[in-house]
């Protein structure tokens, strides 16, 4: 394709200041927190615009709760003992759907490359994505929890705050581990199949602690509930450190 007039365009336009002058408009560098905040805000803005991921996740989680509330019945009453398993299965399965879709968006325009190419700290990119996914999972939990209480006829009283804390810790643990694996599998063709295969074995301790803590809370065993809550917090702390340590190495080709 010939480009007429290209030669005339080879000199810098008068309106454009020289590089050194333009560089004075650069600030020193994006901080960790500012970058993480920008990435999280961008992800949530994209989601607010389409609402595709949160609707899919919430609908799927709600269906699980409703179906199991009819499945686990004894003496014409929903079994309270099923609540921990139902709630955590709903959160984890819905979260996996959301995780896959959230990273599909990064794949569409190959924008994950753009994020990794920027001078922003790569760990801040990871932190931002994790915060956004955690927010989505918490939004799903905000629907799952009342649905479980309603359909299984559970009255937790003040312990509902403790359950909210357990679910929030679970959301964080799920998002931290999930973000690393979803980012790592971004370029793999069979990522939809592989993501649960590699993710769930690592989530097993978290799911176990979550169900145990929820079950103990429902049974009124507050001491046990706090033990498993601390276990969940320790799980999160370990995987935040491991993920921050491995993220960059895992996402570069």
């Amino acid at each position: 394709m010939p480009i007429d007039g290209l030669s005339e365009n080879l000199t810098m336009p008068a309106s454009c200041p020289p590089r050194a002058q333009r560089r004075t408009t650069m600030v020193v560098g994006p901080s960790f927190l500012r970058t993480a905040g920008a990435v999280a805000a961008k992800d949530l803005r994209v989601e607010l615009r389409s609402r595709e991921v949160v609707y899919t996740m919430t609908f799927f989680a709600a269906v699980i709760v409703v179906v199991f509330s009819f499945a686990f019945v004894k003496d014409q009453k929903a079994l309270i003992e099923a609540v921990p398993g139902v709630a955590w299965a709903a959160v984890v399965f819905a979260g996996t759907i959301g995780l896959g879709r959230a990273f599909d968006r990064e794949r569409e325009g190959d924008t994950m490359r753009a994020l990794l190419l920027s001078p922003a700290p790569r760990l801040a990119v990871f932190a931002g994505k994790t915060v956004a996914i955690t927010a989505l999972v918490i939004a799903v939990e905000a629907v799952v929890l009342p649905l479980c209480l309603l359909f299984f006829n559970v009255d937790l009283g003040a312990a509902v705050l403790h359950l909210a804390l357990i679910l929030a810790l679970g959301a964080l643990g799920f998002s931290v581990v999930g973000t690393v694996f979803a980012a790592m599998l971004l370029r793999v063709r069979s990522r939809d199949v592989l993501l649960p295969v590699v993710l769930y074995p690592i989530l097993v301790p978290m799911i176990m602690a979550g169900t145990k803590a929820t079950g103990a809370l429902l049974a009124g065993a507050t001491g046990d509930a706090w033990f498993w809550t601390q276990f969940l917090a320790a799980y999160d702390a370990v995987f935040v450190i491991v993920s921050l340590w491995t993220f960059e190495a895992l996402v570069i080709e």
Binding site: V27, P30, T35, A38, K42, V46, R49, S50, T111, A114
Partner: peptide
């Protein structure tokens, strides 16, 4: 390397932020 759900300005403002552009 741009987000389809954002406008052109939103995309550039986001990336300018990541590059620390004033």
């Amino acid at each position: 390397l741009c987000y389809g759900e954002l406008t052109a300005v939103e995309n550039l403002v986001f990336f300018a932020g990541l590059y620390g552009v004033a």
